[in-house]
Design a protein around this nucleic acid. Structure first.
Length: 471
RNA sequence: GCGCCUCUAGCUCAACUGGCAGAGCAACGGACUCUUAAUCCGCAGGUUCGGGGUUCAAGUCCCCGGAGGCGCACCA
């Protein structure tokens, strides 16, 4: 049987093209036009000398209509199993009951689905089975395919949009000698010939800025970053990040760019800048709210809180709202932790939370007028952080000081701290012009536009525990 | 990593206070010339997640282990 399967099948149309072109046919009308389509049999309704089946490809579904008097190998056609792949040739018609169909004249089996379909109506619900055998999920549950196609369209749009605006896409190393670019625990691997440990990147940030030093004024990269942290409905150990750097820009410029690109992406892949997420309306139309982190926090706790607030008062307040303060934390870290606990989950509308403490932002430039702060914002939508951006720190001496601080944190046991990247400091000594940088969590954006709450639903093969322990 | 919940046929799910493991769909065999989750007849399908224990008797109760979901923590 398998030997009879052809090595190719050249279809004339995707199914959605057939539907678009012939939707005007009225019941019993025949188009006189033959097409060749291919896909998977998802329903089958043999009925004696007639046989109906639903054929699905990645663009849509159409009914196949077979007649004993017309269709070659009619008996075998009637016995097709759910899940079998077939290529068919026939005329586009509409049946008596009004269903647009391809009247099958000839057909060929393209793959035998030996393992069964899920429930033909209920699909596959078991999330473990869906994730471990995504191929089954994708054709048993149309929604799963839709989400992956949405993801693809979004990433494609981001590329096109940025290229049209004069940004160029670059690729930087994934294997890093020093973990840096974000405060996160890295994965460690080893290069045998060089006999050196390497770290999977937690962010591409530093290499991208080195390209700006080299004269690439507007660069971006869309790629995988890796963080050695726990799994959750919002975290996969490998995730897709879009980072962008623009010479001569500051974080205000980046805010405009951010709201522009995300609202345009919504229009492109969702069809509107007003979206529905978790049964709530969400308006992504710019301009978005911009508010300082300390202002948000002060409002939430009904008292004035900032970096000048005495440390003892900060600790008291933290305790009151249920934030466990580590002894090593400075005021900046305490303030950010309190903000994340009290404010962030309630920020539903798109909001640029601005001006983070320098203490927690080792790569961002000092605020031009607020001492102890940096020019940094995080974009929060629906209570989730979607983007992080700043006016980049350009001063090599200051950067070195920040790295020294990070290294001592690292030595003190803080596993999320950055290493000392002397090559990066040297790069800054070659001269980084004023630069604005942006990182967007692409998976989070797909989740938002796809209206899903579990990141696994929008990653084709999410990280899972091994199925059975080695014996 | 911790807490709570879940795991029964290929899939979706039943099985009362412990008492013969079942249904629908799929698959397989058959009937049917306009079906739409077609319908009808027939047949087959099980390590009840794994291991141990209590009991005359365990899918059900207890213990150990595994995986998944949700929450917490860390981050995007």
């Amino acid at each position: 049987m398998v030997n009879d399967i052809p090595y190719s099948f050249h279809k004339t149309s995707d199914i959605h093209q057939v539907i678009d072109q012939w939707s005007f046919l009225s019941a019993t009308q025949e188009s006189g036009h033959k097409v060749k389509v291919a896909g998977r049999v998802v329903l089958s309704r043999p009925q004696g000398g007639l046989s109906f089946a639903s054929l699905r490809d990645w663009t849509g579904s159409i009914q196949l209509f077979a007649l004993k008097s017309v269709t070659l190998n009619f008996d075998q056609f009637s016995k097709l199993k759910l899940g079998d792949w077939v290529g068919v040739e026939g005329e586009v018609i509409r049946t008596k009951r009004g269903e647009l169909s391809v009247k099958v004249e000839s057909w060929v089996l393209l793959a035998d689905a030996i393992l069964g379909f899920g429930d033909k109506y209920k699909g596959i619900k078991d999330s473990e089975l869906r994730m471990r055998h995504r191929e089954a999920d994708l054709w048993a549950n149309e929604r799963s395919l839709e989400l992956l196609l949405l993801r693809s369209r979004l990433i494609s749009f981001l590329r096109r949009y940025l290229e049209n605006k004069g940004y160029i896409e670059v690729e930087t190393p994934i294997l890093h000698p020093v973990p840096s670019g974000a405060l996160a625990r890295p994965f460690v691997t080893h290069h045998n010939a060089l006999d050196m440990d390497l770290y999977l990147r937690v962010a591409p940030e530093l290499y991208l800025k080195r390209l700006v030093v080299g004269g690439l004024e507007k660069v971006f990269e869309i790629g995988r970053a890796f963080r050695n942290e726990g799994l959750s409905p919002r975290h996969n150990p490998e995730f897709t990040i879009m980072e962008l750097y623009q010479a001569y820009a500051d974080y205000n410029d980046i805010m405009y760019l951010t709201e522009e690109i995300i609202s345009a992406a919504a229009v492109e892949v969702y069809g509107s800048s007003i979206i529905t997420y978790q049964d709530m309306q969400l308006d992504l139309t710019p301009p978005w709210d911009r508010i300082a982190l300390t202002a948000l926090l002060s409002e939430a706790v009904s008292e004035d809180v900032n970096l000048d607030t005495p440390l003892t008062d900060l600790k008291k307040l933290a305790k009151k709202i249920g934030v466990d303060v580590d002894a090593s934390w400075g005021p900046g870290k305490i303030v950010v932790e309190m903000y994340e606990k009290v404010c962030e989950p309630d920020l539903w509308r798109p909001t640029f939370v601005c001006d983070y403490p320098l203490e927690v932002s080792p790569l961002a430039r000092q605020h031009r007028s607020k001492k102890g702060y940096v020019e940094r914002f995080e974009l929060i939508i629906a209570g989730r952080e979607l983007a992080n951006a700043f006016s980049e720190l350009c001063d090599p001496k200051e950067q070195q000081r920040r790295f020294v601080q990070q290294s001592s944190n690292l030595a003190a046991g803080e596993e999320e701290a950055m290493g000392m990247d002397l090559d990066y400091v040297t790069a800054l000594e070659h001269g980084l012009p004023p630069t604005g940088g942006l990182g967007i969590g692409v998976d989070r954006l797909v989740m938002l536009l796809g209206n899903v709450t579990n990141i696994k639903d929008i990653i084709a093969f999410p990280t899972l525990r091994r199925e059975a322990p080695p014996v």
